[in-house]
Computed example of a mutant assay.
Amino acid sequence: MKKLLVVSLGIIGFILLLSPWILILFGKNHLHDHDIPQQEQLVEGQPKYRFLVVFPHPDDEVTVAGTLMKLKEEGHEIQLVCLTRGEKGKSSGIEDEAQLARLRTDEMHRAAELIGADQLHMKNYPDSGLEAVGLDSLKDAVAGIIAEIQPDVLISYDSKVGLYGHPDHRLTGQAVEEVFLENRGKSGFSPEEMYQVTLCKKQVKLALKLSAGFQKNYPEDPSLGLPEPDFSIQTRAYFPRTLDVMQAHETQQAVLKDLMPLHDKVPAWIYSRIFDREYFREVK
């Protein structure tokens, strides 16, 4: 009987030991399209580049934080642009928009420091108001930023959805994309490449089940959904620091939990092996 008990305990211990790895395998199979190629970096074997990363809101940079940290460690320059101060992001219960704008500006500065950005450029366009600004005015603003900073590579949202359907996201991606495509190769226009953060189909499918933001805003017609990724970047080593970036946005924890479900419940060493890559489309 004692021997049987020892064997049973050993089997249970073995199952418990295996269970996290089973969870990781299950998660990876349900979150990633393994036909999409992985590459080590956006630019490989190149000299130092200046990257201009343009997003509308404080906390949008979380979507590419691992890739940016990796670029910085490889010696590239990171210039972050945040078009608004996020005064409409009231999930924390703070109704005073001036106070919220100050708080979120401070949070964005902390996040930029954690990423290692060389410079953060905070603009003052209206949060959830880029439609009123208009695409042409937004393109003029983006063109001016590019002329000032003279980047080699651009990173932003896609122009079809804006990751999950927020109008500010989509318009930002559209403005950056159109400025790039209309001016690439012209004298005085420095960017040679542009990349857009996106998701694979499995991630979109899961997000539509778990995320209220996706359920509310994502297009019902699959043909109107996110562009297919061209590749992914392996970012597992940077996941603990990405969590720090997320925590820097103290006023937006409810939103971030919605977009990355259970990240505060599942141990980081497990979560990092499931959410171990960031997907991109190259604008050509």
Rank of each mutant, 00 (worst) to 15 (best):
G162M: 09
L163Y: 15
G165P: 02
G165H: 15
H166F: 08
P167H: 12
H169Y: 13
H169M: 05
L171D: 06
L171C: 14
T172P: 02
A175D: 01
A175Q: 08
A175S: 13
V176E: 03
E177F: 05
E178Q: 06
E178L: 07
V179Q: 01
E182H: 06
N183L: 03
K186A: 00
K186V: 05
S187W: 00
G188C: 11
G188I: 12
F189C: 03
S190N: 05
P191S: 10
P191W: 12
E192V: 15
E192A: 13
Y195C: 00
Q196R: 07
T198R: 03
T198A: 00
L199V: 04
L199P: 02
L199D: 04
C200V: 03
C200A: 08
K201L: 06
K202F: 01
Q203K: 12
V204Q: 03
V204I: 15
V204E: 13
K205G: 12
K205R: 10
K205W: 07
L206P: 01
K209C: 06
K209E: 08
L210C: 14
L210T: 15
L210D: 07
A212P: 06
A212I: 11
A212M: 04
A212D: 07
Q215G: 04
Q215D: 04
K216E: 09
K216G: 01
K216H: 13
K216I: 01
N217K: 14
Y218T: 00
E220Q: 14
D221T: 05
D221P: 03
P222Q: 04
S223E: 02
P227S: 02
P227A: 00
D230N: 11
F231T: 01
F231K: 03
I233G: 00
Q234W: 05
Q234M: 08
T235V: 14
T235E: 01
T235Q: 03
R236H: 02
R236F: 09
A237Y: 09
A237V: 13
A237L: 15
F239H: 00
P240Q: 04
R241F: 00
T242R: 09
L243T: 04
